[in-house]
């Protein structure tokens, strides 16, 4: 459905494909496939019992009429600070924050420029009677005009170059960390961690080579480079739903979860059935019991608690020690199978 919607928008935005750039047809189909893939993967993801539960609860608490105005403010603030600014990644390490910020903004800028162009939503025309000016068309409607040799034109037509610089710098930092950090090196996997970096680097470098080719080398090997660049982009788009970059679409869940957790923290607290200390929001404990049952876990108990989830993590660790010790002292915290 989202794919169909995008297709319709492409047709409409390009005025029945009149301003659709035929050279970009490969890109267009790749974006359509990627949209389908991402939607499908997202739907599969939402099928998982915990994800479904958290998705529902996130929206429920976010939209609760009494809290909505405040939630909107908080959501905006978090979107700016945590998402746009990557504050929480900077807290993991300044270089790690910078790495991600560069990659993310590089990709966002590039996407903001290319997708509307590819889909024919934006195109430029020289202003009739004034070949020194460009006029922007958004969804076929005329927008602002600017002179060809202005600073504005330089910035806009080289937007992709600036974006590539950001991405390349970020990817280099990421590679650096993956090479010198023993911890990262031990757990990284090629397909999951290295491939996305290679892809982003390949897109940026081949893109830059295109610019170099037509600016300084009179278009040397331009068509070969164009195909190479297209291949890297199309492959990345098709791979989006499967690999690490899916986090771009999944990550907003972070916001939903924060509203759920805050609502739970304000509400009734669950007290551990063993030590009586409060340890979590009661609603979260109840939801987790539901999720565990849906998943087929059987943590049901008899006696003090009906479910193991009603025991706090600290008591769980203590009980583990007590159970083992009791085997040696002759008590009977064991069962033969």
């Amino acid at each position: 459905m989202t794919t169909a919607l995008l297709a319709v928008l492409i047709v409409a935005g390009s005025r029945n494909l009149a301003h659709f750039d035929a050279a970009l047809v490969g890109y267009t189909f790749a974006t359509l496939f990627a949209t389908f893939g991402i939607t499908y993967r997202y739907a599969m993801w939402l099928e998982r019992p915990p994800t479904r539960m958290y998705w529902r609860r996130g929206w429920q608490f976010f939209l609760s009429p009494r809290e909505l105005p405040r939630n909107l403010v908080t959501a905006t603030k978090r979107a700016v600070v945590e998402f746009a600014g990557n504050r929480f990644i900077f807290r993991r390490g300044v270089l790690r924050g910078l790495t991600h910020w560069l990659i993310m903004w590089g990709c966002l800028v590039a996407a903001a420029i290319t997708f509307p162009l590819v889909w024919g939503w934006i195109h430029f025309e020289t202003v009739p009677g004034d070949i020194e000016s460009y006029r922007t068309f958004v969804f076929g409607v005329a927008g602002g005009e600017f002179p060809v040799d202005s600073f504005m034109a330089f910035v806009i037509f080289h937007g992709l170059v600036w974006a590539s610089f950001l991405v390349i710098a970020g990817v280099m930092l990421a590679f650096r960390r993956r090479m010198i950090d023993h911890g990262a090196a031990a757990v990284q996997q090629f397909g999951e961690d290295i491939l996305p970096l290679i892809l982003l680097l390949a897109i940026s470098v081949t893109g830059l080579m295109l610019t170099v080719s037509y600016t300084w080398m009179k278009g040397y090997a331009y068509s070969f480079l164009a195909i190479l660049h297209a291949l890297t982009v199309i492959f990345t788009l098709l791979w989006l739903p499967f690999g690490k970059l899916f986090h771009v679409f999944q990550r907003p869940a972070q916001l939903g979860v924060s509203f759920y957790k805050e609502a739970a923290a304000r509400g009734e607290q669950a007290h551990c059935r063993r030590c009586d200390a409060p340890y979590a929001g009661a609603v979260m404990v109840r939801d987790l019991v539901t999720v565990e049952r849906e998943l087929g876990f059987r943590y049901e108990l008899e006696g003090r608690a009906e479910h193991y989830q009603q025991i706090c993590p600290r008591c769980r660790r203590a009980m583990f020690g007590l159970a083992q010790a009791s085997l040696w002292t002759g008590h009977t915290a064991s069962s033969e199978d």
């Binding site: 007590l322 083992q324 040696w328 008590h331 915290a333 033969e336």
Partner: peptide, 25 residues
Amino acid sequence: NVMVPRSKSPPLMLDVTAAMDERPE
């Protein structure tokens, strides 16, 4: 793995929740 007394064969399963009311010696 967790170490349990060898005398009790077959190998034991450690019943953690059975220690709910256990107190340290």
